[in-house]
Amino acid sequence: MNQFFTVDVLTTTIASGIALATPFLLAALGETIGQRSGVINLGVDGIMLLGAFSTYYVELQTGNLLLAILAGTATGTLMGVITAFVSVTLKAEQGISGIGVYLFGLGFSSLLFQKLVGTPLPISTLPPVGIPGLDSIPLIGGMFFNQSLLVYLAFLLVPVATFVLNRTTYGLKIKAVGENPAAADSLGVSVALIRWSTVLIGCTFAGLAGAALLMYGGIFQINLTQSEGFIAVALVYFGAWRPVGVMFGSLLYGLVGVVILTWKSLGIIPLSASDLAATAPAVITVLALLFLARRFRQPAVLGRPYEREG
């Protein structure tokens, strides 16, 4: 156990835990914004897969990282148009339509990967960028300030999302629509418009999360996400619909995963317990929620389409 508490090991464990948490964080932040306005999107995983594939394909074709990430993000937006149309305009059952979007993304991304790419080829990924001044702080610098730009972006989006939700008119409208759409409607807020916008933002984030996931591994394969999108949705509940809570949930999940791997590599966890140790992130997240999030209430009309009376 002593080997674990060395500067190098701790630094890298936390740094890679943060990197591992980034796709979860991006996807979960987007989902948070959507859910605050009352819309559940269970299709996140499928959208992440499509976003990751677009990023991968564009990078393979052009070699341009920025273009690739933009393509992944734009794919998310595109899927957002479909999701919003179905969930908001057609007022479909959101839980079910999300499963549909998920299956579509899973099948379509696998299909395209096999027909358009086939052999897994690695792509270049975003290099870590040290933040001048901060990255040389002992311990902290290596943990937090030597990451790729997408990681900084994801964590910057946490205060931004908090600010938007709590301090702007738009944020107030989002929450009003999620808590009492009829009242918001009577005050002249367009419920459909607000929800369209939050769903678009959420799906765009999901596309970006797919790009971030791809940047983490540097390669695409069938079902790359391994249900990470569903875990991201779960983390929204964990974070009690608050961006900061969601951030802590993502970090907890990512860090526990990396700590387990580190302990295995140090021989702290014996091989015989390898499989069972791999359940730790899931078990700890559920147990943590059992103790933490019971006090918080979800948006009042979560998952319910709004129908104007009369």
């Binding site: 479909a92 059952e93 549909g100």
Partner: peptide, 24 residues
């Protein structure tokens, strides 16, 4: 030679269409 993942994608499409029609 079309991967059977096509069927998965189609299932997803059907779900989305069915829930959409349900509202109508």
């Amino acid at each position: 030679g079309v991967p059977s993942d096509l069927v998965t994608a189609l299932s997803g499409t059907i779900v989305v269409l069915v829930v959409s029609l349900e509202y109508l």
